[in-house]
């Protein structure tokens, strides 16, 4: 690792701070708009107003909003994500318990998107304006437009309820029962992946078309290299930078889309945790999930930047 890469990591870590603060402040503010009162939920159906007020005091909900936030943040920076207002369980435990389910479908979606999107992109770019290209491009534009939760419901209807090939809902632990975990993850990952497949296909196609019509590819032809060598060596290395960028984007989007997909497939992941906690105004849980997910996204993007500097010689010496 050279000096530049260390600097890159350093500056990225500094960037984490404002991003995390911004994200959590935004979520905190939005939660205030949600109707409902965690104290009332805890107190139960027939609680008196005094009992509810007591609980509010106990939880610190009577204090000003900004003060609640600062207290939360103070704990969070020390690695303590507080406890759920409703269950009293530590948030970090709950998040870490559910995170593998979410990451499994997200990573699987990303793998599918790359494995399907890259060959499709290459196929289209090497057959520009021919029927194959037209078909691929049309399907890709549809794929970008289809909402993934809707597609998820169709997939469940067809493959799970109809054919019975896959379980309809739930999740399993990847370490304890990998096969079952994968069969649970297959449909939600596919639903999550469609947007990514379409995005990778489109971006890779246009990047590769640009590379293949560039002046330096003309030089490669002038040197007498074969088309195959030009495509697989020079073409792919040049578009790998675009691919990396798109992969990062697709991962971020897929992670965000888990909120809807986990609801459709009833997966006990972080997405469904956010939804459930938000309806209860259980802000420490919502904040905790956002905090952890933001860290994951930033970590991945940092990794991509580092890979970028390895692949593109121009990055290092600029």
């Amino acid at each position: 690792m050279n000096r530049r890469q260390l600097l890159l990591i350093g500056s990225r870590l500094l960037q984490v701070v404002p991003v995390v603060i911004l994200a959590t402040v935004a979520i905190f503010g939005l939660l205030q708009l949600v109707p409902g009162d965690p104290a009332a939920v805890i107190a139960g159906e027939y609680a008196t107003a005094e009992r509810i007020a007591d609980i509010r005091r106990m939880l610190g909900l009577d204090r000003p909003v900004w003060e609640q936030y600062v207290v939360w943040l103070g704990h969070a920076v020390q690695g303590d994500l507080s406890a759920s207002l409703i269950t009293g369980q530590p948030v970090l435990d709950e998040v870490l318990r559910r995170l593998p389910n979410t990451l499994l479908i997200t990573v699987l979606a990303l793998v599918l998107a790359v494995l399907i999107g890259v060959p499709l992109g290459i196929l289209a770019a090497t057959r520009v304006d021919r029927p194959t290209d037209r078909i691929v491009t049309t399907i890709a534009s549809l794929g970008v437009a289809v909402p993934n939760f809707w597609l998820g419901m169709i997939l469940v209807g067809f493959f799970a309820l109809g054919l019975g090939w896959f379980p309809t809902t739930g999740a399993a632990s990847l370490t304890q029962d990998p096969l079952r975990a994968l069969s649970h993850a297959a449909l939600p990952a596919l639903a999550l992946a469609t947007g990514g497949i379409a995005e990778i296909t489109r971006q890779l196609r246009s990047a590769l078309i640009e590379v293949l019509s560039s002046q330096y590819v003309r030089t490669l032809h002038a040197k007498g290299l074969s088309n195959a060598r030009i495509l697989w060596q020079h073409g792919l290395k040049n578009v790998s930078l675009t691919l990396l960028t798109v992969v990062g984007l697709v991962f971020n989007r897929a992670l965000g889309a888990t909120v809807a997909i986990e609801a459709v497939f009833a997966i006990p992941g972080t997405g469904s945790l956010v939804v459930a906690s938000a309806t209860n105004k259980d802000f420490p849980v919502v904040q905790g999930v956002v905090f952890v997910l933001v860290l994951i996204v930033i970590g991945l993007n940092l990794m991509i930047d580092l890979l970028y500097s390895l692949l593109d010689p121009r990055v290092n010496r600029r």
């Binding site: 560039s214 002046q215 330096y216 590819v217 030089t219 490669l220 020079h234 290395k237 040049n238 692949l311």
Partner: peptide, 8 residues
């Protein structure tokens, strides 16, 4: 400037 492949 543009006739050589930038990544090799």
């Amino acid at each position: 400037m543009s006739a050589l492949d930038p990544v090799f």
